[in-house]
Structure formats: structure tokens, C-alpha cells
Computed example of a mutant assay.
Amino acid sequence: MDLSACAVDGGGSQDPLTARAYPENAHAYRTAFERDRGRVTHARSFRRMAGKTQVFSNRYSDHFRSRLTHTLEVSQIARTVAGALGLNQELTETLALVHDIGHPPFGHAGERALDAAMREHGLIFDHNLHALRIVEHFEQRYAAHPGLNLTLGVREGIVKHSRDYKAADHPELAAYFLDQRPPLEAQLIDLADEIAYLTADIDDGLEAGILELQDVRKHVAIFDRAHTRMEQQHPRAASKLLLAGALTRMLNELTGDLIRETARRVKNAGATSLESIRRHPERFASLSPEREAERRQAKEYLHACLYVSEEILRNHKQAEEVVGGLFRDWVRNPELLPNAYFSMVARDGSPRVVADYIAGMTDSFILEHWRER
């Protein structure tokens, strides 16, 4: 399963994907993508993910995933897949660590609320594009340049890891090869993300008492199969250990399938270089038809039984009220913004600046503003 011929090199200054907007000398002992990984993990926006909801807010328990702990789980899966396929592990890990950095508070509910508020002004909020704004402009750590000055390969992956953008709709993204597929290192991030959150959300949903074990087993075939094997192999084990083992088996089965199916598709297409990956009409990273059907089944079950549960919907309603209410307040009265943001209103317009400000907040920080309004 060695796809190293199709991998991003990243080992020297001759690779165009290691180029930076502001040229820098090569590091003595770290590759360009290793340096990017360090820049991401030391960024304020990375740390703030600890205070942002994944599915459950921290009022339930400190044991539930935050946006940050979810990101760390994604990075482990993604790096495993990249290593098994012979891809560039440093680039893959960096893309996993940065993939959710543009999310606003309150998880996907916060993103939907912020996007709805922006659409009232003929604009949109897209967390991938906001992540690019963060690393290019908002993170201020270096005297020599604005932003983190990440490599072109990482910035392309931020934009394209989960979807394709049309050049006609986004001329500002012209530098990111919108007419081509992203490298395999970027392609696999979205499925690593899915594998991470499907298993984690089952775990957290059961822990919260919203999901019931036998109901999950009845409706999620891959989990039931994994749980049955745990019962057969460890008949005297405590129920919580059977659950943990079943979730690990489910995660491993999906991850292994992603590795095998991606390698199979690349081989069958005769792709032997990064250029051939880029020019292929479809993305290669994929699950097999059988596992893809089980992934969809698990996702549909969670949408029907967890994401629309009374507790989660209460969080969604709060997100809509808080995000939408503060957005409207600050758009009408941008002078209430911190000076650093107010100074950008004349250039970018108050809706975009307010969205940028809200998107950077943690759950607790935006709730503090809501209480004080």
C-alpha cells in the first residue's frame, strides 16, 4: 500500500507546496511542514478550541469532547492513514490539527447561526475560509510578517480538505489550484474527521444518557458487530470496557478500510504521481461501498437520535439566540467592538468584522457578552 510516489514531497525548497507568502530561510533540522505544525499548535486560535463545543457543552461533563480534543483524535487517525499509505505524515498531521480552527462557538449550531446572520447581508460564513483568514491575518506572532506564514501546501489543504470551490465563485482563492484535486494528504482529512466524530459521538451520547446501548446496537451495524466480538472475547468484562473496546474496533475497522480502499482506487486508476492525483476527475480517498453504507447508517442514526435530542436542540436554540442577537447588536453599533476590530469596519464592513469577532470566541466568552448586553 505504498503510495509514496503520489505523496507531497515537502523535503526541500524546490517543492512549490513548501513556498510561503513571505520567504524564510530553511530551518536547520525541521521540515517546512513540521514548522507549520508547530505554528498551528502554538496559535491562540488553536488553544481556543478547548473552549468550543463539539456536540455537548461543558455544562454536561468535563469528560465530553471539545473542539480541541476532537481535533487531536482526528490528527491521530489521519497520521495513521498517511503513514500506512506512505504519504507525507507531517503535512497530514498539520492539516488535521488546523482543520477546525475556523469554527465559531457552539459547534455546528453556532456556524449555522452565524451563516444565517451573514446571509441577511448577502454574505456567507464558511469555517474553511475563515480558517484561512485566521492563519493569514488574525494570528499575530511574528515581527517579520502578518499571520502564521504557513506553506502553500497547508493553506491549500485548509481550503480544500472537505470540499471543492469554484474559481468563478471565489476568485480570491486563485492561488489554490481550484481546477485540480487536492493532494491525498488533504483528501483523507475529511474521512478521518468522520471516523473520529462518529465513534466519539456514540461514546458521548451514551455517556450523556441520550443514547441507549441496545438501541445503538440495533441501528448501527458496524458498532453492533464490534460489540458482539468484544462480548465473545471478554465475556466477563465490565460493560464500560466492552463499550470502549467496541468503539475502538469500530474506529479501527473504518480506518483500515479507508487505507485499503484509497490504495485500491489509486492503483486501479494507474496514478503514479502527485500530478496524476491532482488531475483525476474525482477524489481518491474513500471508504469501500460496504463500509461507506455503514458510515452513512451510523451518521443517519446520530442525526435522528442524538443531534435532534431535546438537550442538543436546547443548545442549538441558545446558539441561535446568542450568536444572532450579538451579531445584530454589533452590526448596528460597531463602535461597541474592541478597537482592533472597529478599526477594520471601514475596510471590510461591519457584518464581516462582527462575524470575525464572534467566530474567534469561546462558548464561555460569548455567553459572558450575552449576559452583559
Rank of each mutant, 00 (worst) to 15 (best):
E212A: 13
K218D: 15
I195G: 15
R181E: 04
Y197C: 15
Y197F: 10
R264C: 04
L211D: 03
Q214N: 13
A200P: 10
A196W: 10
A237Q: 01
P235C: 12
D190G: 11
Y176W: 12
A174T: 03
A237C: 05
Q233S: 10
V266N: 01
S239C: 05
I195F: 10
E185G: 14
F177I: 01
A271Q: 06
G270T: 07
I259C: 07
A237S: 04
K267G: 13
H227Y: 13
R181I: 07
L198F: 10
I210L: 14
A246Y: 12
P182F: 02
D203Y: 12
L251A: 15
S239P: 05
F177N: 07
I259F: 08
L258V: 02
R181H: 07
T272Q: 07
M230H: 07
E231G: 06
L251N: 11
K267H: 14
L242D: 03
T255F: 01
E261I: 00
L243A: 05
E212R: 11
R249Y: 09
L247H: 06
L191D: 09
A221T: 06
E207L: 15
Q180Y: 11
F177M: 12
L198I: 10
F223G: 01
G245N: 08
L258G: 00
M230K: 04
L178Y: 13
R249C: 03
I259P: 01
D193E: 09
K240W: 13
L274G: 12
D257M: 01
A200D: 06
P182G: 07
H219D: 02
E212T: 07
Q180A: 10
A263W: 03
